[in-house]
């Protein structure tokens, strides 16, 4: 589908192509800086331009050393290593639990006889509307009273809860597309609600499940505000909270190690994005556009 007139096509394509290549180069420039700087020693970082390699030490070896320094930290457990595992738990368990609970609720809301289903839907959906700030203070004190503060369980629960509303919204849309006839015939065959859900809805839901998992995983992995508010110790702090601490006032790992850690911290989500890019693109349209196709 070209809108460029044939005679001038090549001429235009070259211009547009150059524009977009320059654009991409500008866009990747900050990322390039990070990679280059992460391969420098502290002295090399100070004495060279941010976008140039510094060869006072072997960049590859230095890169490896910076990563180790970032993961392990300079003192007992101050690196992002343990936090990487913490965040893995939060992102995986939080996303999966949310999807399971949300799909049950979406199934009930779309296909089962429920009075006031719209009210229930609004209650569940309301979680996507407000800024996270409104939840912080009471959750903070609630966690404190129940002993959930600074535990992996507490953060997992909070992340699960924050993921549920959007999952309900998306899955409900998806389930509304299932022809009513299928549900009715299953009921006539004597299947219980749970059996219908399991045999008809779940197999049919794999595409949205995958999409939701990718998005919620990315969200939880990249979250910062819950992480800094609800966890203190290294046994429960998620990765982004620790990473922000690494570049803080009194940290002493050095800039190259901070940047190397930032690369490591970004790997899971970037790899997911590259591997599932089309799912991300489609999912984004659903997320923002509300269309279920």
């Amino acid at each position: 589908m070209f809108i460029i007139k044939k005679g001038k096509k090549i001429y235009w394509e070259v211009i547009l192509f150059s524009i977009i290549i320059i654009w991409v180069a500008v866009w990747l420039f900050p990322i390039w800086n990070v990679f280059v700087s992460a391969m420098k020693s502290i002295d090399g970082y100070i004495s060279s331009r941010p976008w140039e390699f510094s060869f006072d030490v072997n960049p590859i070896i230095q890169f490896y050393e910076n990563i180790v320094r970032g993961l392990a930290g300079t003192q007992r457990g101050s690196g992002i290593g343990p936090a990487f595992l913490n965040s893995m738990i939060y992102a995986t368990v939080g996303a999966i639990t949310a999807i399971i609970f949300a799909s049950l609720a979406a199934y009930a809301l779309s296909c089962l006889p429920i009075k006031g289903r719209f009210v229930f839907f609004l209650i569940l959906f309301s979680g996507t509307v407000f800024p996270l700030q409104i939840y912080l203070i009471p959750l903070f004190t609630f966690f404190q009273k129940t002993g959930l503060y600074d535990t992996k369980l507490g953060l997992t629960l909070a992340y699960t809860a924050i993921c549920i509303p959007f999952c309900v919204f998306l899955l409900r849309n998806w389930y509304l597309d299932i022809p009513k006839g299928i549900v009715e015939s299953a009921t006539i065959d004597g299947a219980t609600e749970l059996q219908t859900f399991w045999h008809i809805f779940v197999p049919f839901s794999m595409p949205p499940f995958v999409t939701l998992f990718l998005f919620q995983f990315t969200w939880v992995w990249n979250d910062f505000i819950f992480g800094i508010t609800f966890a203190r110790s290294r046994t429960s702090r998620p990765i982004m909270a620790l990473l922000a601490g690494l570049q803080n006032m009194y940290s002493n790992v050095g800039i190259p190690a901070v940047l190397a850690s930032a690369i490591i911290a970004s790997l899971p989500t970037v790899l997911l994005l590259v591997a599932f890019r089309n799912t991300f693109f489609k999912g984004l349209a659903v997320q923002y556009g509300g269309s279920s196709k």
């Binding site: 990747l28 990070v34 990315t218 911290a265 970037v270 890019r277 991300f280």
Partner: peptide, 15 residues
């Protein structure tokens, strides 16, 4: 061009 979507606010800010 879409790559920054996968990066967290913290990583972007440090960068």
């Amino acid at each position: 061009l879409f790559l920054p979507y996968a990066l967290s606010g913290v990583v972007i800010s440090i960068m």
